[in-house]
Every structure is written in structure tokens, then in C-alpha cells.
């Protein structure tokens, strides 16, 4: 995939950051407005698509660290699981830290809507990581088909059928 014109790369360099800001906004307000972790995460993940299309595959691969997105995904998934476990002993996913109307919160740092917004953030992390990796792997597989690089020769236990 080749880089596009200077106009496109310049506009993309500016505009792509707004997508991250907008995505984070959608994630953080998911409990009270339309949107949430998945929708916001998908918006943030468009950042990589912008970079790939505007700057081309070579620069894209030089910038992207797959391990970091894997870590985002892992942290998001584990956080989601742990926030779900906060509901015990009532039930899995029970919103045990939500603050009732007029009551004092356990801590100033905890959101009033409880685990809902925390889980939105966890899903956001997960989706940003996963969708960015999807873009990365889809592009890598195009290269793999074109060049043959990365094919491991793992054809199961075939020995005599080759």
C-alpha cells in the first residue's frame, strides 16, 4: 500500500487525533449518552486505519507496535472480568459500587454510576486493542499472500500426502 498525496497525509495527521479525542469522549460518556466502550473503542481504532491509508504500509509497520495493542486488549479484558466479579456475593456483574441518589460515594474517585462506566472503559481498552490488531493483521496478511513471507509450512501432520 503506497502513501497518498501530501494533502491527504497532512489532513490525516491533524484529523486522526480528533478521532481519538472523540472516541474517548464516547467511551467516557457511555453510561449517560448513546455510545459506550465498543462504539468509542471502534472510533479510536480508526486512527490506525487513517495512518495506514494516508502514510502507506511501510511507514505504518515501522510505527505500529503490535505488542502494545495486545497489552491494551489484555488489560481491558481482565479489568472487565474483575469489575464483573465486584458484584459478588450478590451476583456476577451486580453494580455494587453504584451510589444511590442522595448518598455519599465511597470515594471521590469512583463514578456515581458504579461499574457501568468502569466497564465501558474496560471494553473501550479491549476494542481499541482488538480492532487495531485486526487492521494490522489484515494488512500483514495481504503482504503475506503477496510475498509469501511469514508462511510457516505448518500443514498439520501431513507426511505422505504432500
Amino acid at each position: 500500500m503506497k502513501p497518498l498525496s501530501v494533502i491527504v497525509t497532512t489532513v490525516s495527521d491533524v484529523f486522526a487525533w480528533f478521532m481519538i479525542v472523540f472516541g474517548v469522549y464516547v467511551i467516557l460518556n457511555g453510561h449517560s449518552t448513546p455510545g459506550g466502550g465498543f462504539q468509542g473503542g471502534a472510533i479510536v481504532a480508526t486512527f490506525l486505519s487513517f495512518m495506514l491509508v494516508a502514510h502507506g504500509g511501510k511507514r505504518f509497520l515501522a510505527w505500529v507496535n503490535g505488542g502494545m495493542y495486545g497489552l491494551l486488549e489484555f488489560v481491558g479484558l481482565m479489568a472487565f472480568f474483575l469489575f464483573g466479579c465486584l458484584g459478588f456475593p450478590n451476583s456476577f456483574f451486580h453494580n455494587s459500587i453504584a451510589v444511590a441518589q442522595g448518598a455519599r460515594p465511597l470515594s471521590e474517585w469512583l463514578p456515581y454510576c458504579g461499574t457501568i462506566s468502569l466497564m465501558n472503559a474496560a471494553v473501550g481498552f479491549e476494542v481499541v486493542g482488538a480492532l487495531s490488531l485486526v487492521v494490522l493483521y489484515m494488512y500483514s496478511s495481504i503482504r503475506m499472500v503477496d510475498t509469501g513471507a511469514g508462511m510457516g509450512g505448518e500443514r498439520g501432520h501431513d507426511r505422505f500426502d504432500r
Partner: peptide
């Protein structure tokens, strides 16, 4: 907490946790 009350949740939670922990 009575663990036996939450068995239906554990049934799906355990393999899901296994899947989530695989990067480790």
C-alpha cells in the same frame, strides 16, 4: 458467599478467564 449458588456463572466465567489469560 455460597459458591454453589453461583455455579451457573462460574460455568462460563472459568473458560472465559482461561481465554483472557492466554497472553500470559
Amino acid at each position: 458467599m455460597n459458591l454453589s449458588d453461583h455455579l451457573p456463572a462460574f460455568l462460563v466465567m472459568i473458560p472465559l478467564l482461561g481465554a483472557f489469560l492466554t497472553p500470559f
